[in-house]
Simulated assay, not measured.
Amino acid sequence: MVLGRIGHALAPHSHDSADKTDAALETSSRGMRVLAISFAVLMATAAVQAAVVVASGSVALLGDTLHNLADALTAVPLAIAFSLGRRAANRRYTYGYGRAEDLAGIVIVALIAASAALAGYEAVRRLLEPQEIRNVGWVAVAALIGFAGNEWVARYRIKVGREIGSAALVADGLHARTDGFTSLAVLLGAGGAALGLRLADPVVGLLITVAICFVLRDAAREIYHRLMDAVDPALVDDAERILATVDGVRRVESVRLRWIGHALLAEVELLVDHDVSVVVAHRIAVEAEHRLIHDLPRLRAATVHTDPDGPDGADHHASLTPHRVSGRDPSRRG
Rank of each mutant, 00 (worst) to 15 (best):
A285H: 06
R134N: 15
L257P: 06
A167P: 11
A176T: 07
P308S: 13
V76S: 07
Y93I: 04
V255E: 03
V34L: 01
G149R: 03
I158N: 02
I80Q: 10
A113M: 02
V280M: 05
A50D: 06
A55S: 14
I37S: 12
S83N: 11
D247Y: 08
A318H: 10
L128D: 14
Q131Y: 08
A190L: 01
T65N: 02
T65F: 01
A18W: 06
D64L: 00
I223Y: 00
G334M: 06
E151W: 07
E101Y: 07
D247M: 09
D218L: 02
G334H: 05
V124Y: 08
T94D: 15
H323L: 13
Y156R: 13
L42P: 06
G313K: 08
L111T: 06
L265Y: 03
S331Y: 08
V59N: 08
I260D: 05
V252G: 07
P311S: 10
R250F: 01
R298G: 00
P233W: 03
S38D: 12
F214V: 11
L73K: 04
T303R: 10
N90K: 09
V41C: 11
A116I: 00
V107M: 11
I106H: 00
T74G: 05
A154K: 03
V249F: 12
L10V: 12
G98R: 01
R332M: 13
G327K: 01
A244K: 14
P202N: 14
R217C: 00
V280F: 04
A176K: 01
D307L: 13
R250Y: 03
R283Q: 15
K20S: 15
L271A: 12
T178N: 12
T178A: 15
P202K: 09
G149V: 01
E101L: 11
H15Y: 10
P202M: 07
R300P: 01
H317A: 12
D102C: 02
A230Y: 01
A168V: 05
L235R: 14
Y93A: 15
V252R: 04
I223R: 00
G310T: 10
I293D: 10
L235V: 03
A302E: 04
V107I: 11
I158V: 15
R126V: 04
G96M: 07
M43E: 11
A230P: 00
A11N: 11
A114F: 14
D218R: 05
P297V: 00
S56E: 11
V304F: 09
S38Y: 07
T21P: 03
S254N: 02
N68H: 08
L296S: 02
P233L: 06
T21G: 10
Y95W: 13
Y97L: 10
T21Q: 12
G327L: 04
V109L: 03
L66W: 11
L61N: 13
A239Q: 08
G4C: 11
